[in-house]
Nucleic acid binder design. Sequence first.
DNA 1: TCGAAAGTTGCATAG
DNA 2: TCTATGCAACTTTCG
Length: 584
Amino acid sequence: MMMRQVLQDFSHSLARSGCVVLALWKFPRRLVSPAMFCSFGRVCWGKGELQFLPFDVLLIYVLGKVVCDRLQRYKRGAKMTTIHWFRKGLRLHDNPALQAAVADNFELRPVFVLDPWFVSNARVGKNRWRFLAQTLNDLDVTLKAIGSRLYVIRGKPEEVFPKLFEDWKVQKITWEVDTEPYARSRDEKVEKLARECGVKVVSLVGHTLYNTEKIIATNLGKTPLTYQSLQSLVAKMGPPPYPVPALSSLPTSCIIQPQAPSGSTYNLPSLSELGIDESELGPCLYPGGETEALARLNKYMERKSWVCKFEKPKTSPNSLQPSTTVLSPYLKFGCLSPRTMYHRLIEVYKGSNHTQPPVSLLGQLLWREFFYTVGATTSNFDQMEGNPVCRQIPWIRDEKKMKAWEFGQTGFPFIDAIMTQLRKEGWIHHLARHAVACFLTRGDLWQPWEDGMKVFEELLLDADWSLNAGNWMWLSASAFFHQYFRVYSPIAFGKQTDKHGDYIRKYLPQLKKFPDNYIYEPWKAPLSVQKAANCIIGQDYPRPIVDHDIARKTNLDRMSKAYAAGKNKKSSAGSGPPAKKSRK
DNA sequence: TCGAAAGTTGCATAG
DNA sequence: TCTATGCAACTTTCG
């Protein structure tokens, strides 16, 4: 009994130090054969249990367990296998988890799981499915170039992995950390299953500049709620890690021979398998994949002066060609590493005067980091209710208004043109998102920001959970931004950068022939002008859904009341500063 | 603890 | 065409 106690204590202490724990008395035969034990010399075997095991031999046994296990497998002719599970992080450059996958020289199985949850629960529109399919294809091509391939598995991760672990005799699985709620619960399940199957799990940060947990720890456990506070935190932490080298070749031991034949069940998904009718797709302006992402990054980084002078608020929301980089979809899927982009920007900036965050290009990466950090640590971040950072505002759902906005039928050409571009092309400029989000919520239609967020989630190529929810709260003055009296005008705002309305003419061709002075407000045009433009308002194009001036005033009043109610609630709850007296 | 300062990017108008 | 200012007054952060 005493020996057993010693063994138990020893194995517990090993467990605490992170070593593999062996339940010796439960299944010694399965782990190592008696013959192999004997090769250590001094171990006695009896009645299915270990007996009289000297301490030093135990130590040798424990430390040598992995070696024994491998030896046994090699004797059987089986090889060691590692799965790298691609989810986001769909790239070979700067992929710490993928590097970790090849570190042990085991056979590598790069896997992507086509999870039915995303088909039924996530709102993924046609354009984003296409982007993903292209990205997977690109990944497969680049993996093939180094002697591997992508294995696409259909099914729920928690169901497919135990089978894969068994079929492929997997020792290790690696993946990139994902902080979104669904990903977290999914990964917890898979991690538990892996441990039960004796598979080692390695998850590493690669999707954000920093480990969001470290940012929170630097802020003494609190979530930063302003961009500036995030900026001072990351200033304390120093620059983000340098990108790890791209996986440009595979060690021979990682290459599986023979390769699974093409036409196998692991094939890439076709568009029709994803439920996409190709004939319904518009032209592909932003093809998915790491190759395109790096080419795009290079193209922009070559424009040194443009990069150094970049100020986001000065770029145009309604230019005919994007006035910004459109790297966001590539960052969203991890075709591009934010750390690679960060350090490339630092290189370009070197020795030159350049703009600063928040408006600079580097500042845009910090915005992404800000919303990822808040999103990772705030409960119900994508909802109003139960969300501690979100102001409770009594939005009034109106399906007609919502549909009009969603399908570009509000009667405000600037808003409708933006929504048309979004639906067709999957990308709109950041300030265009501001204009339509403000219009839908506090500006004009008084619809809940969550509903707008869902439409963006479906239609945007770069729909990114944290950024989408965070920005919708921002624009609706529900969190982060509080100057609700600053309302974007659906008429005046677009004129600043496109006074002739070329953008409107491109996306709403029915208004093409309106003269410049009516293009933003066609309902004001005399009937003769409408007839000459071959477009009668109320017939060929809708009348405005609201009177902007009246809606704005009504909504300002509603916002003011919602803010006051929030303040009262806070002060009566005894938290936060006491309510100030109204200055009115 | 509390007051002051600051906060990615508004609009309309006057000069 | 560009810039300054009033509008009305929010929240978070910082010292």
